[in-house]
Design a binder for these strands. Structure first.
Length: 431
DNA sequence: TCTGGGGTCCTCGGGCGG
DNA sequence: TCTGCCGCCCGAGGACCC
């Protein structure tokens, strides 16, 4: 497996056993901060915070020098500066990070086509089919790190394991600039002493629910009946934690991902009570969302509005549109209706507009609906019923009342109304 | 200390149609 | 015609991740 290196890291040496592994999780080290250092070497070795400087912004990324002072991502910048007053704060340059991200992903793709990006700076790689070309998974991990440094000038950490979950945990523990290989046989020993919080998917709430029952480590999870986990976390989450604690994780590396929603939200510098301003902001956010939908070739069936009040309570309202749309005006109207339905009992801190239930542009029900095709389906479905009722075939004409005299009269139409002829048709088989 | 912005997934309850 | 059951969709909210 690996050795503790005195800094809380656990790392493997080249040649460590990697039997039964095949999944790599690669995570760039302090990605945004490292890109800033790459572009301005005078920042090297200094505490660096990536984040806007206005009152309400939070830390997006921090160099390890800043983390040494307790600075963490998602911490308010003001708080970070109180912990590390001499830190250099620089605003994020997303366009630049995306540019470097492309280089990073290109390095991943050199080793395997089976790459599943999780964000701009990390991905799962399935290297089970790359052995003949590049070597064993453990060998690939060290090779990839060298190649990454050469191609981008950046360091990364790599977890190597039999499953995505263990690979992800391993890369986290090996950070920064490490490799941790967890051979399949070593998985139980690797997992057992770890905290429940270290599991991917167990956040503060779930950890609290478990710890409140005395379940602090993964070994504790192994000793806990599944019903207790279900009660603590809900059935789905309980089942997941039960399985992950045993090293069971059947998730494959997925190379294609379909976007499910697109949204924008805005925290105001000062809490807002002006309703007119909120209405105009809703329209502006809807416009941005609509533009992104059109760029991506999508339309939205559902519009969701998010309102966060000054006391941080958050409300969501959503509405399904009559027809999918990617028109800012249409999305904006829906979002404004949702806003009108919310009692603004406090000043508003944040507004968000999100498009959900995305469909490809032009595939709305109306655009795709072919009446002739629908009638063919109805006629097919009714053929069998017509036989049972002793009549002839039911046609579109019979249903519309222009009865074909060769058919059996009203039997089929009655059958249709009673829903007795729906076999194989849409709408379920029960009745 | 006072909590961003972009997402995904899950749960639960109500309405509705068969 | 009414009732109970079931599955599906919708809407709201919460937890989690980077």
């Amino acid at each position: 497996m690996g050795r503790a290196d005195g800094n809380g890291r656990l790392v493997s040496a080249p040649g460590a056993p990697d039997g039964g592994t095949g999944i790599l999780h690669v995570d760039m080290d302090a990605f945004y901060a490292s890109v800033e250092v790459l572009d301005d070497p005078s920042l090297r070795g200094k505490p660096l915070i990536i984040g806007a400087t206005d009152a309400r912004s939070v830390v997006s990324s921090a160099s390890y020098e800043a983390r040494h002072f307790g600075v963490r991502a998602a911490m308010p910048v003001a708080r970070a500066l109180s912990l590390c007053p001499h830190a250099i704060v620089t605003p994020p340059r997303m366009a630049r990070y995306l540019e470097v991200s492309k280089q990073v992903m290109a390095v991943f793709s050199e080793f395997t086509p089976l790459v599943e990006p999780l964000s701009v700076d990390e991905a799962f790689l399935d290297v089970r089919g790359a052995r003949r070309l590049w070597g064993s998974p453990g060998e690939i991990a060290f090779l990839l790190k060298r190649r990454m440094l050469g191609a981008t000038g950046l360091t990364c950490s790599v977890g190597v394991a039999a499953t995505k979950h263990v690979a992800k945990m391993a890369s986290t523990i090996s950070k920064p600039d490490g490799v941790l290989i967890v051979a399949a046989d070593d998985t139980p020993a690797f997992l057992a002493p770890r905290s429940v919080r270290s599991m991917w998917g167990v956040g503060p709430k779930s950890a609290e629910a478990l710890e409140g029952r005395g379940i602090r480590t993964i070994a504790d999870v192994l000793d806990t009946p599944k019903e207790v986990l279900d009660r603590a976390l809900g059935v789905a989450m309980g089942a997941r934690v039960w399985a992950l604690a045993r090293g069971i994780d059947a998730r494959e590396v997925v190379t294609t991902r379909v976007e499910k929603s697109v949204g924008h939200e805005q925290t105001f510098l000062h809490d807002v009570t002006d309703e007119g301003f909120l209405r105009s902001e809703v329209l502006r956010l809807a416009d941005r969302v609509a533009r992104r939908l059109r760029d991506g070739g999508f339309e939205a069936r559902t519009v969701a509005l998010k309102v966060r009040f000054a006391d941080f309570t958050t409300l969501g309202r959503s509405q399904t549109l009559g027809e999918p749309s990617a028109v800012g005006q249409r999305l904006g109207e829906a979002a404004r209706e949702l806003l009108a339905g919310i009692e603004l009992r406090q000043a508003v801190r944040l507004l968000g507009v999100r498009a959900e239930n995305l469909v490809p542009a032009g595939s709305s029900a109306l655009a795709l609906w072919d009446p002739d095709e629908e009638w063919r389906k109805v006629e097919d479905a009714l053929d069998g019923a017509a036989d049972r009722f002793g009549g002839g075939a039911v046609t579109r004409a019979t249903f519309l009342g222009r009865r074909d005299r060769t058919t059996g009269g009203r039997g089929e139409a009655d059958a249709l109304r009673r829903g007795e002829a729906r076999g194989g048709g849409p709408g379920g088989t029960r009745g």
